[in-house]
Amino acid sequence: MLSVPLGWFIAVSSALFFIGAAGVLVRRNAVVILMCVELMLNAANLALVAFSRRLSDATPRGSVFVIFTFVIAAAEVAVGLAIVLAAYRNQPTVEVDEIHELKG
């Protein structure tokens, strides 16, 4: 079996994380921000799985962690989209800069 070195996984995972983080900071569309957060969560998942394969001598807790993260990320997206939808019904925009009833 062809083995990909750990460093490559980590490089991809770091790239994903920074693309996601940059997206959250730069983009102003709530749905796109949500997508960027998902990218960051998946970066963490990739890192966890890669580390878990490398450390396979102990119990594979990293892989277990990823399963929990999946479920949590799914719950988070469900709640997040519901919140965006509720806000859209009152004020038809998903641009976060245009949602500023509360001063601050």
Binding site: G20, I33, V37, M40, T69, V96
Partner: peptide
């Protein structure tokens, strides 16, 4: 709506940072 949206977006962002 706005409170939930702001709390959610920053909360999810911080969660992702923490998880990484």
């Amino acid at each position: 709506n706005e409170a939930a949206l702001k709390y959610f977006l920053l909360g999810a962002f911080s969660t992702a940072i923490l998880l990484y």
